[in-house]
C-alpha cells in the first residue's frame, strides 16, 4: 500500500529539557484512519503540530503525500486539513464567516468556496445556525464547525487531534459517523489522536500506542489484541504479602502489579486456568476482594505496553481524604 505519511526519527525537545516527542518512526498507508492512542501529555498533540507545520521539529523529518516537512511546509499545509484539540474558530464571526475566512486563507475561488461552505454546513448540521456568531454555539456545535473548517480545502490528509474531547455521548457518536463517512467516500488519510480506547478501537484501521513521546507498539487492533497471547485475570488483593504468595502461581504467563494496585495475571486460557487459580488461592489462604476475567481488549493492550491503565493517574496519597480530614 502506498504510504501517505512517513515519519523518520521525529523528535521535539522543549526548552532543551522536555522531550515531548522522542525519535518517532511511523508509516501510514493512504486512505486509512490511523489512531494515535495515549494518555494526556503522551506527545500526541506535539506530534500532530509538527506534522502540520505549527511547530518545528528539533530533529528528524517526515514526508506527507511525498512532501518533505522541513522544506515543503507551505505545500503540506495546502493539502492537509486539521481539527486541532483546542477551538480555533473565531467566536466573533458567524459559522459561515469562519468557513469563508478559512476558504480565503486557502485561496479557494469564491464560487467553489460558497458551494463548499453550504455543503459543509449541511454536513455538520449547522446550516440553520450559519449566521449566528460562533460564540453562541454549544461545545458540540463548535467542534463540528472545527471539523468543517478542517475539511474546507478538501484535504488529502486530515489530522483530528482529540476530536471528541469533552463532548457528550450523542455528539461524540455523530462525530464518529462523520469521520467514517469522510474516509469512506473520499478515501482521505485520517490521523486521529485520542485517549479514548473505544474511539480508536471503533474508528482506526491501524494504531500506535504512544507514551512519554515514544511509539511503543503499532498494528491493527486485532493484531495488538492477539499479541497479548492470552486472557487477563485481574485480582484485587488485601495486602502486599498476598501478592508475594500469588507470585508463585505456576500456570500464569506473567503476574504483575499495575498502577491501580490490582494484580494482573496473564494466562493462556482463562477458562482452563481459573479453577487452578481458585485452588491455589484457597490453598495459600489468599482471599481476594474481587476477581475479574477479561478477554484481550485494547485496554489490556495499553496496560501490557505501558504498565498502566489509560485512565489511571500516577499512584499518590488520597489527597482529597487528607484535605477533608483536616476539618
Amino acid at each position: 500500500m502506498e504510504n501517505s505519511i512517513e515519519v523518520e526519527n521525529l523528535t521535539k525537545v522543549y526548552n532543551g529539557k522536555v522531550k515531548a516527542v522522542d525519535n518517532v518512526n511511523l508509516k501510514i498507508g493512504k486512505g486509512m484512519i490511523y489512531g494515535l492512542l495515549g494518555q494526556n501529555g503522551a506527545g500526541k498533540s506535539t506530534l500532530i503540530k509538527m506534522l502540520t507545520g505549527v511547530i518545528k521539529p528539533t530533529s528528524g523529518t517526515a514526508k506527507i503525500a511525498g512532501y518533505d516537512l522541513n522544506h515543503d511546509s507551505l505545500k503540506i499545509r495546502r493539502i492537509t486539513g486539521v481539527v486541532p484539540q483546542d477551538l480555533t474558530t473565531d467566536g466573533d464571526l458567524s459559522g459561515k464567516e469562519n468557513l469563508k475566512l478559512v476558504a480565503d486563507l486557502y485561496d479557494i475561488p469564491k464560487k467553489d468556496a460558497l458551494e463548499s461552505i453550504d455543503l459543509l454546513l449541511h454536513m455538520v448540521d449547522l446550516y440553520d445556525v450559519r449566521d449566528r456568531h460562533a460564540e453562541t454555539y454549544s461545545g458540540g456545535m463548535r467542534k463540528r464547525l472545527e471539523l468543517a473548517c478542517g475539511l474546507m480545502n478538501k484535504p488529502d490528509v486530515l489530522f483530528l487531534d482529540e476530536p471528541t474531547l469533552g463532548l457528550d455521548v450523542t455528539t461524540r457518536s455523530n462525530l464518529w459517523k462523520y469521520i467514517r463517512s469522510i474516509q469512506k467516500e473520499f478515501q482521505i488519510t485520517i490521523i486521529l489522536t485520542s485517549h479514548y480506547l473505544d474511539e480508536v478501537d471503533e474508528l482506526a484501521n491501524e494504531l500506535s500506542i504512544i507514551d512519554h513521546g515514544k511509539i511503543l507498539v503499532s498494528g491493527t487492533s486485532p493484531e495488538l489484541k492477539k499479541s497479548l497471547k492470552g486472557d487477563i485475570i485481574t485480582v484485587h488483593l488485601k495486602n502486599d504479602s498476598e501478592f508475594e504468595k500469588l507470585k508463585s502461581f505456576k500456570d500464569a504467563i506473567d503476574i504483575k502489579k499495575i498502577e491501580t494496585g490490582d494484580i494482573r495475571i496473564k494466562v493462556s486460557n482463562s477458562d482452563e486456568v481459573l479453577p487452578e487459580l481458585m485452588g491455589f488461592l484457597s490453598k495459600n489462604q489468599i482471599s481476594p476482594d474481587s476477581i475479574n476475567i477479561r478477554k484481550p481488549s485494547l485496554d489490556e493492550v495499553f496496560i501490557e505496553y505501558t504498565g498502566r491503565n489509560i485512565n489511571a493517574e500516577q499512584e499518590k496519597p488520597d489527597y482529597a481524604k487528607l484535605m477533608m480530614g483536616r476539618r
Binding site: G53, P84, D90, G91
Partner: peptide, 13 residues
C-alpha cells in the same frame, strides 16, 4: 490565547 492563531498557522499563508 483564544487558540485562533493556531488556525492561521495551519493555513498555507
Amino acid at each position: 490565547r483564544l487558540g485562533i492563531l493556531q488556525r492561521f498557522l495551519i493555513a498555507p499563508i
